[in-house]
Amino acid sequence: MTLVAQSVEQPPRTKRRSPLAETWDNLRKSWAGMVGLTLIVLHILIATTSPVWIPRDPLEMNAKIRTQAPSAEHLMGTDKLGRDVFSRSMVGGRVTMVVTLIAISIAVVWGGLLGIVLGLVNGRADELIMRFVDALLSIPWLLIILLIVSVLGTKMWVQALTFGFTYGILTVRVARAATLDFVTSEFVLAARARGERKRTIVIKELIPNVRDVLLVDGAMNWSWMLLGFTSLSFLGFGVTPPTPDWGFMIAKNREILGVQPWAVFGPVVMLGTLIIGINLFADAFAKALGLDRSQGAPV
């Protein structure tokens, strides 16, 4: 009985539209959220500054020191071509982070706007476009991305657009569902009664209200995109060698997993801490905003 009784207690609900300061205060109280934020900030710092302070040139090959275990010279040892794993792991997230961060902005903007507009008009056009969205969501995500990248190549801007478009499809649903909660609310009805134009309603009434949902969704989506992009990279469709990249490093260094596991652990730890950091932060961020974090797989 005690077990049941305790599960009934619900955390106090915060106000839905808390100002920035209040959100920050809530966030600060969350232990997990602060760990997450710290991890993200650390990763961004490493990605931006690492080329200056890494001990070795990440591209420099040396046949004499192939596949070596960690030492004072090489903190995480070397890979099959004698390159320094530590240095490569530090810079290995740069392309991934740039591409996914640009892509996430694209996804939030196009997916968010389309979703809001669809939620507002909610008629024939809405039904038709949602059919299309559902159809796109039923094609395996990996196939869509692989197809687009095969057609358009692996340039960074192509990948950013591809990921922005593909993952934005998920955002369309989220934004539409959130908008539907508001279109029948008094302030939107009042705006309609005043004869406001649709564009004004979207900008003045809907975007400010759906914004929190979109921010949390964006943080979540960033984590899914990292999963997607590094998978692509793992399969050899991501970053062009010899540029160091976590996904590709894991794919290549798996061959020496038994002899020099650090060549795999390096990129795994870097990628893992970033993804876990984002998730811890997204969870706490959603709670701080008074939202339940939406859960779901990237199709």
């Binding site: 590094t230 998978s231 894991i250 795994v268 990628l271 984002i278 797989a297």
Partner: peptide, 12 residues
Amino acid sequence: VAMTLPGFVTAT
């Protein structure tokens, strides 16, 4: 952790 890490990382 299991859900958000890429499958190839978990597998490796």
